[in-house]
């Protein structure tokens, strides 16, 4: 902000910014509000209850779906984040940056239903090709490789989440000075050691954020998961298909609210953590001697 700017105009702009954030959050907040009402949506009376949440945890279908969701989220994170890290390293060193960046970012631009449909038909055909190949050699070993299953859902979700992890990691890597890797090499560390001892500790925040993002994205995703999954359900697919079939029941309000609480808690704590860390780092830096170079 400029010294001559109107302070009230500045505050007005801030108010607008916060209002937009609030508007974006309104539906979610309203759902949370309704979810604690014993009389459900539209009732004249508001009676606080946790009854609807209790119903979720007594629903075996939902608990089973929750289990699948957690496993799916973990597997996708464990595979996709290292892949994004490798891609970011590759991108940094690549001479031709256009091809990798196009390949890694374009999934962002492909709408969920289009990506889901394309992959669904692709996997079904790939499965037929593998079965045919197996028949030629006389083995049924390949028969179920690309049948719609946990694997196909994982692949679809990796493609969906990689761009986000890639961008987050790339941004944190932007602050890293490559001279430090060279200095480590000059100290006798091999490439891996230099990465692990020197670079990784400095981009760790980005990698962890990417992990959190991926978990949340997988947890939230409906379209791609429901198109590509085999015979299992995730929490979101159960919830959405319930809402699509029977409309919003009090229980579905509670489920939506719960998913939102989890996501907001995770991201909120990351934001809070980075803010506090930046704050304390800033304070330390200010307290200590002014460095000549920075």
């Amino acid at each position: 902000m400029n010294d001559y700017d109107n302070i009230w105009l500045h505050r007005l702009k801030w108010a607008y910014l916060l209002l937009v954030v609030l508007t974006l959050m309104t539906p979610v907040i309203y759902v949370m509000y309704v979810s604690f009402n014993a009389n459900g949506f539209g009732a004249n009376e508001y009676v606080f209850t946790l009854e609807w949440y209790g119903l979720i945890f007594s629903d075996e279908l939902l608990i089973g779906a929750l289990g699948w969701t957690v496993i799916l989220a973990l597997v996708v994170t464990v595979v996709a984040v290292p892949m994004a890290l490798l891609s970011a390293k590759y991108y940094k060193a690549a001479d031709n940056k256009l091809f990798p960046i196009f390949l890694l970012l374009s999934p962002l631009f492909v709408p969920p239903d289009i990506l889901g449909s394309a992959l669904l038909v692709f996997f079904k055909n790939l499965n037929l090709v593998f079965i045919w190949l197996g028949d030629q050699i006389g083995t049924s070993l390949f028969d179920s490789w690309f049948r719609l299953s946990f694997l196909t859902a994982t692949i679809g979700l990796i493609i969906y989440t990689i761009p986000y992890s890639f961008v987050v990691i790339l941004i944190t890597m932007g602050r890293y000075r490559t001279e430090q890797t060279e200095a480590a090499r000059a100290c006798g560390a091999n490439g891996w050691r230099a990465f692990w001892d020197i670079e990784f500790p400095q981009i760790r925040a980005g990698v962890f954020s990417a992990c959190a993002f991926t978990v949340i994205l997988v947890f939230n995703e409906y379209t791609r998961t429901s198109l590509l999954k085999g015979g299992f359900d995730t929490f979101t697919t159960v919830l959405i298909s319930q809402m699509l079939n029977t409309g919003m029941s009090p229980q579905s309000y509670a489920m939506s609210a719960m998913v939102s609480f989890v996501a907001i808690a995770v991201i909120g704590s990351i934001i809070l953590f980075t803010m506090l860390r930046a704050e304390s780092l800033g304070r330390i830096a200010r307290a200590k001697a002014e460095p000549v170079m920075s």
Partner: peptide
């Protein structure tokens, strides 16, 4: 990012 992190469908 906060609203964006709540499932779009929800």
């Amino acid at each position: 990012i906060l609203p964006f992190m709540v499932s779009e469908i929800i």
